Amino acid sequence: MESNTIVLAWGAGEDGQLGVGNTEDRDTVCRIQIPEVEDVGQRVISVVAGSRNSLAISQEGQLFTWGWNQRGTLGTKTKTETDTESTPTPTQVKALAHVKIVQAAIGGWHCLAVDDQGRAYAWGGNEYGQCGEEAERKEDNSKVIRRDISIPQRCAPQLTVRQVAAGGTHSVVLTHNGHVWTWGQPWPPGDIKQISTPVRVQGLENVQLIAVGAFHNLALLEEGEVWAWGNNEYGQLGTGNTQPRSQPVPVQGLSDLIVVDIAAGGWHSTALTTDAEVYAWGRGEHGRLGFGDDKSSKMVPQKVNLLAGESIAQVSCGGTHSVALTTDGRLFSYGRGDHGRLGYGRKVTTGHPMEVRIDIESPKNTSENNGHWVAKLVACGGRHTLAIASSKSNEEIF
């Protein structure tokens, strides 16, 4: 990794998901080290935080995972090894070492990745077909329980994929022609049977980005419009009610805005506009929407005024918290605070965005930044958060 780029983590660590070599919680920012990347002068370009595990992608397209592994979610098993319960340090996924991974996602108990050729891969829990593998059958043709996939394998081979997204029990991919496909357990669960082969989501054209929560889905069209479908128990679809939708519908209240980014947490959603402003909707418990003392759920998007005055570049949504990244590289967290998941040194739940300080010492082989770092990317998980930061003195952020 280049000396002016570091990977950060904070929050719950009971499954080793922080990647710092132990299972302790951290309520302030700590640094993750990946020797296989750093020692060859490379850097990490992307991180993803899941429910109980994490992953990172290097600039060379190598994938590293750490955390909980009982369902094979780390993808590091070989044909001669057995699954381990957890791994608290980043480990390379050697089954994908021969390809260049460009993007990845973590769902409930499964993971997805896509390489630079548009080929998608899946591993982990597969009880609903979310890894794309059909159930094994006995000789009498009766179904048996789907097996977990401990070694990454190809999925959706008929599609040329540019983005993958993973939900609690389903998978979603965006293809290069702007179409969205999905498989696994849909929502509502009784609407469509579990499927292992991709089915195209009807009614969506020219999609440029997808985001998936536990059981709901968002799609950002090239024109800046946002559509949603799936579970809607807390209004996370932004339709003004709590009726679930099996087909995409437009999110209300954003028609006069141009949205440039979207994010989906477990049961809440956010949108970022061209004016660098944040809108949030869905479950408001614990203050995860960022509306201060108002922790009620919102059926339609509302502007997060507590971030007014800050130029926001990205928002990431976790299970019960959110983190906003500003264009000048600062981080603001809000929502549930136990296990230290907000990262500002106190395990206090709050709906008021609080700044996360990056007080990390410079690497021993460099002195140019004097420990002053600015964030470039943030990824919220169930109870922990990851980020990538760089030296302010050496690199313009946005």
Rank of each mutant, 00 (worst) to 15 (best):
W66D: 11
N126S: 03
G290R: 03
Y334S: 02
V180M: 00
I262T: 11
H110W: 12
T80A: 07
L254Q: 05
V356Q: 04
E36K: 10
P244D: 07
D359P: 05
Q33D: 09
G129D: 00
V7K: 05
D338G: 10
V249C: 08
D359G: 10
L306R: 10
Q153W: 09
A263R: 07
E127W: 15
V164M: 14
G381L: 13
Q194L: 13
A375Y: 03
V7N: 01
V356K: 01
L55M: 15
V48N: 12
G11M: 06
G318A: 03
E395N: 13
L272K: 04
T197I: 10
G318D: 00
W10M: 08
E127F: 15
T239G: 12
I6V: 05
V249G: 01
E368V: 11
L209C: 08
V374K: 06
N69H: 12
A389E: 03
D148T: 05
G107W: 10
I397E: 12
T28G: 14
T65A: 14
W267H: 09
V93Y: 07
G107Y: 10
W227R: 05
H384A: 04
V278I: 04
A375W: 08
V201K: 03
K298L: 11
T65L: 04
R341G: 06
D25S: 00
Q236N: 08
N241I: 11
R341H: 02
I388R: 06
T349C: 07
I151T: 11
G132W: 15
G125H: 06
G16E: 11
R119G: 09
G16L: 11
T175N: 03
A280T: 04
S322P: 08
Q208M: 14
G284D: 01
P35K: 10
L386K: 01
A122L: 06
C111H: 02
S316G: 04
V102F: 01
K77C: 14
S367K: 14
T91A: 06
A228E: 09
Q42P: 04
Y128I: 02
G351N: 00
R330I: 02
I34K: 03
T73L: 15
R200N: 13
G107L: 07
T82P: 00
A313M: 14
C30V: 12
A211I: 07
A135D: 01
A105Y: 01
